[in-house]
Design a protein around this nucleic acid. Structure first.
Length: 380
RNA sequence: GGGUCGGUGGCAGAGUGGUCAAAUGCACCUGACUGUAAAUCAGGCGUCUUCGGACUUCGGCGGUUCAAAUCCGUCCCGGCCCA
């Protein structure tokens, strides 16, 4: 470790379901479960928190279901659960495909991909649903624009995000009051900073969010618990938008949690941690795992100047047919303990769910190990 | 032995004179995936290529035709029916 490196200040996020040390990674359990992975699988790799999705759980099993159940009891989640607001679906469903709905100042009007039914998602409904879910951390509904839109369109999305954030806080306070939740037991509330690739818009958005917090401040709501980086963090070529991520992290007060929504690839995470981002969630380890992309760490495990040594291989490639080596003899996951490249390749040639599960699990372990490592060093 | 239907690219299976290097599916090869409409999606899949094309293919051989996977003859092989 060179002299510029310094021991990172230990930070712990306190939730109703325990503390998590920063930085940490949460897999996406969008529909209330991490695809292909059981609670036992997840506990075997010491998973610390998950992200569920308000929109998807709204569709099924539905809000009324959660009037009687909560996500912890129902899904038997004994770790902190964060719910995303459905804001990303405003982007991924509606903004990317107009047939899927429309966005108005009132909220987002979705056509369900499940059965075609229409669903209004407003900032208020999103917050109320997140209370019904009984999660430990929640995010306000936001409007994430494509990065390549004209600046005035992105400004519009920022304005809408701000307006929605204010309505979200009001609903948050209303819910806390009605449910008589103590300040200590409250779910944490995250705002989302939009602004696309424009730093001045990001700054404008952050200032707007701070202003809302100031104006809405009372004995129930003191301030945002954290801020998320909204929208897309990669440009149209898929390059990580390092500068804007770095500048945005710098603007956020250090006593606030910095949530890098949807980030990202292992190297993007390493960079983001060095910028000060604390929290991450991403579908890469699980989705790409199911698609046969296997992350393999290289030894010795060192991270120098934000460079992480690892390789990503497609296990379906013919070259693995006869490779009977163990995948990573240092890895403690089920895949590396019991199987080899060749057998895994075989599982994928038959598209057996076992292969998909094993790789998703392995990749997730890769991410969790990486986060553990990043806790011990301040990467410069 | 007689009759009849059929033999198409790794497999299944379209096509029945030119628009056919030949639909489609599977298999195979490769790539993409970043707050999950994703066990999904995209591309390639005869040979060679200076990426413009060039060359060899639809059981074998031989014809007809300007032109044949497609029509005719014959042979080989397979299914079914009759002896």
């Amino acid at each position: 470790m060179n002299k510029k490196n310094q021991i990172r200040q230990k930070k712990f996020l306190k939730t109703n379901y325990g503390e998590i040390e920063s930085p940490f990674f949460m897999p996406d359990a969008t529909r209330g479960f991490v695809k292909f992975l059981s609670l036992k699988d997840l506990s075997n790799i010491n998973l610390e928190a998950v992200v569920v999705n308000t929109y998807h759980l709204f569709l099924r099993p539905g809000q009324s279901f959660f009037k009687k159940e909560n996500i912890h009891k129902w899904g038997n989640w004994e770790i902190p659960v964060l719910s995303d607001s459905g804001g990303y679906q405003v982007f991924s469903l509606i903004r990317r495909n107009k047939k899927m709905g429309k966005i108005t100042d009132k909220g987002a009007y979705f056509r369900s991909p499940l059965d075609g039914k229409w669903l209004w998602l407003t900032p208020e409904k999103s917050i109320a649903m997140q209370f019904d879910l009984g999660v430990d951390m929640m995010v306000v509904l936001d409007d994430p624009p494509q990065n390549n839109l004209k600046k005035d369109k992105i400004k519009q999305a920022v304005e809408r995000t701000l307006q929605w954030a204010r309505r979200s806080v009001k609903e948050y306070k209303r819910q806390i009051r009605n449910r008589r939740i103590s300040f200590k037991k409250r779910p944490l509330l995250f705002a989302v900073i939009q602004g696309g690739p424009y730093l001045d818009l990001r700054e404008y958005c952050l200032n707007g969010l701070k202003k809302i917090a100031f104006e809405e401040k009372d004995d129930i709501f003191k301030d945002w618990d954290g801020y998320g980086f909204g929208g897309r963090h990669v440009d149209s070529q898929g390059n990580f938008m390092e500068d804007i991520l770095k500048a945005t992290a710098k603007m956020i007060p250090n006593n606030k949690w910095k949530f890098a929504l949807g980030i990202g690839s292992p190297e993007d995470i390493v960079k983001s941690v060095s910028m000060g981002w604390d929290m991450f969630d991403c579908v890469i380890p699980t989705r790409e795992g199911r698609h046969g992309k296997l992350l393999i760490r290289k030894y010795p495990k060192i991270i120098v100047r934000n460079k992480l040594k690892y390789e990503v291989v497609n296990i379906s490639n013919q070259r693995f047919k006869n490779n009977t080596k163990i995948i990573d003899k240092h890895c403690q996951c089920e895949l590396c303990q019991y199987y080899n490249f060749s057998f895994l390749h075989h599982l994928f040639k038959y598209q057996d769910p076992l292969g998909m599960r094993l790789v998703a699990l392995h990749n997730l372990k890769f991410y969790l190990d990486l986060m553990n490592e990043l806790r011990d060093i301040q990467v410069v």
